[in-house]
């Protein structure tokens, strides 16, 4: 029998009894980051492959939302800061060892790129679009000539961004449930999948939808594979990782994770998409909505569970 008691000191706000330093803001930021990564990745990819006309939603429409979503994400991150006046401090330092620093610099790079990318496409989506100032027209024109290099850098940065949303957490050795190298690929896959889902929401083209569905089925399958591996990894690891996995295997997060993330967020949309692809059921926006919601729950629950998971005594 062991009793462990903190008899005095402690009981501090957001530290005790378990960490609760990160509420909804950070999960939303990670979620939007992943989503935008997915959107920009596919947009740039199909742009480079010259599919802009076949896949207008992917290449041109959803990227218009990217800077807005990214801006929202940055705003929630800002909301989370306890010392908001010092936000500029992110940009007076480059700390190679700090994922958070990587993230802030990645965002510094990808945010203007996403703006440029949106600017390049906005005219095509809204033919009546007019820039208020002449210099803007000129800039967009210059950007258009560099569209391919921009697209390439978008691919690079969006992959970094997507992985970063997972690495940010997995770098925290102190929280066993986060401390797995699978979190990077998993969040990337989830980001890609939500990006696809956003496209599926907006797309009206049959072919485009079909292709999106096909890719999404694959990414979801990858996600499921990664999740299984994550748990296998935990269970084959040290005691504390086994304990950490217990949070999802019988512990407090079991129901929420397996129902909202795995069942409703992955398996059900996977099944629906497969049936849609085979034409067994009519195509709806339901799987896309489920994937989008599941992606958020994944981050929210992982962020929560990580704060509960500790090295113990």
């Amino acid at each position: 029998m062991q009793e462990y008691t903190i008899t005095s000191g402690r009981n501090m706000a957001h530290i005790d009894p378990t960490l609760s330093i990160w509420g909804w803001e950070v999960p939303v930021y990670l979620y939007l980051g992943g989503l935008v990564a997915g959107v920009l990745f596919f947009s740039a990819l199909y742009f480079i492959r010259g599919k802009a006309d076949e896949m207008p939603t992917v290449v041109r429409v959803t990227p218009l939302l990217a800077p807005i979503l990214l801006g929202l994400g940055l705003f929630t991150l800002f909301l989370d800061l306890e010392y908001k006046l010092h936000v500029f401090r992110f940009y007076t330092n480059i700390r190679l060892e700090s994922p958070m620093s990587w993230g802030s610099w990645t965002l510094a790079a990808i945010f203007p790129l996403s703006l440029l990318w949106a600017a390049i496409h906005v005219g095509k989506v809204f033919p009546k679009w007019r820039w208020p100032f002449g210099w803007m027209d000129r800039m967009v024109a210059i950007a258009e000539t560099y569209a391919r290099p921009i697209a390439w850098s978008l691919i690079v940065y969006s992959v970094i961004l997507g992985i970063y949303t997972g690495i940010l957490l997995s770098a925290f050795n102190a929280r066993p449930i986060w401390n797995t190298a699978i979190l990077g690929p998993l969040f990337l896959a989830s980001g890609l999948s939500t990006g696809l889902a956003l496209n599926m929401l907006f797309s009206k083209e049959k072919n485009e939808l079909h292709l999106l569905g096909k890719i999404d089925v694959m990414t979801i399958a990858v996600e499921v594979f990664l999740i299984i591996h994550m748990f296998m990894g935990f269970l084959a690891s040290a005691e504390i990782h086994i304990q950490a996995a217990g949070l999802f295997l019988g512990g407090p997060f079991t129901a929420s994770f397996w129902v909202f993330v795995v069942a409703l967020g992955l398996l059900v949309p996977l099944l629906l998409e497969l049936l849609e692809l085979r034409g067994r059921i009519a195509a709806t926006k339901i799987p896309a909505l489920l994937v989008l919601a599941g992606g958020f729950f994944l981050r929210y629950i992982i962020v929560e569970a990580g704060q509960v998971s500790t090295w113990g005594l």
Partner: peptide, 11 residues
């Protein structure tokens, strides 16, 4: 220099 991002707390 602290932004209150709380990464260090989590770590």
């Amino acid at each position: 220099e602290c932004t209150g991002c709380k990464a260090c707390i989590a770590s």
